[in-house]
């Protein structure tokens, strides 16, 4: 995890206790009001409807009272300084937080008007609909084919081998990888380059035809060329999928996303059209972040 995060939180606590001593140029606690987000956090055709979401790890609160809509077929980018809770919030959307024992999520999170955290809700089905791509490429130590076929196989999406072949080919095509690997589908995936691995992971995610794809810094382990390929891919995918992407690169957010959400110390500070966020941010914290004063 992130080793500097606890330090950030404890500093914040210090500020709360003693608001009159602005040692650094960071008077955020006095500016942010919990649960209040400037800009346009809500949308009409919401895929995700998230209200008053709070997440805590044990006693530390990682997400503080956030409300947000994610519209159908939009690409929304989460940006913000390290440790501000972007990944935590993203992982709520397909309940990847479940495997962390101390993690508690409250509030109302709905996917297509159905509660995600409902006790009767099936997490397997949820994750089949909301796929995820991780920061570090994590192909399984199997062949390329088996990696992509893994999801369809466990969900029983293909009845015949030819169906499966088709799904694999389509997914690899969509991920822009087909040309590179079509002759070595039986080679192990771990032997590929980092960029190829990440695109394979994307292919693996879209092989189960999810409705939403969550991406947590998908390009942070890649070189610029591989990054460009993945970004291209995102642009193509945005036609048929809803995409939520966490990124540290503001250029990337500007290039791929329709809307951008700025997180700060667990708060959702500002959400707006991407070009608006980057050209005329409404909140001063957003402005300091994108102008590079901290982060």
């Amino acid at each position: 995890m992130n080793t500097i995060n606890p330090a950030v939180t404890s500093e914040a606590d210090q500020y709360q206790a003693e608001p009159v001593a602005p040692v650094r140029e960071q008077p955020e606690e006095t500016i942010i009001e919990e649960g209040k987000t400037v800009g346009r956090p809500f949308a009409d055709n919401a895929k995700f409807k998230l209200r008053d979401v709070n997440v805590s790890y044990g006693d530390t609160r990682a997400i503080k009272n956030i409300s947000l809509d994610v519209a159908k077929n939009e690409v929304i980018a989460f940006i913000g300084p390290s440790g501000c809770g972007k990944s935590t919030f993203l992982r709520c959307l397909n309940r990847m937080n479940d495997s962390i024992e101390i993690c508690k999520v409250t509030g109302s999170l709905q996917l297509d008007d159905q509660d995600i955290y409902d006790r009767r809700r099936d997490v397997v089905e949820l994750r089949a609909r909301v796929g995820m791509v991780f920061q570090k490429p994590n192909p399984f130590p199997k062949s390329i084919y088996d990696n992509v076929a893994y999801g369809p196989r466990i969900h029983g999406l293909a009845n015949r081998k030819s169906d499966l072949d088709e799904i694999v080919e389509n997914s690899l095509r969509k991920a822009g990888l087909w040309g590179e690997v079509k002759d070595r589908l039986d080679a192990t995936a771990t032997g590929m380059s980092g960029g190829q691995q990440q695109r394979l992971c994307i292919a693996r995610a879209i092989a189960v035809s999810p409705e939403v794809i969550l991406m947590d810094e998908p390009c942070s382990a890649l070189d610029p060329i591989a990054t460009a390929r993945v970004e291209e891919l995102m642009a193509e995918m945005s036609e048929s999928y809803t995409i939520v992407i966490v990124t540290h690169s503001m250029q990337q957010a500007a290039r791929v996303s329709n809307r951008t959400a700025y997180f700060h110390l667990g708060h959702l500070v500002e959400v707006n059209e991407t070009n608006k966020v980057f050209t005329s941010p409404e909140h001063e914290l957003t402005e300091s972040y994108i102008t590079g004063r901290f982060g």
């Binding site: 990847m96 994750r127 089949a128 693996r204």
Partner: peptide, 17 residues
């Protein structure tokens, strides 16, 4: 690595799968 586990779970695999 945990990422392996995450990758599979995120595709909607059950724990036993």
């Amino acid at each position: 690595p945990q990422t392996m586990r995450d990758g599979s779970l995120a595709l909607g695999a059950t724990q036993s799968e």
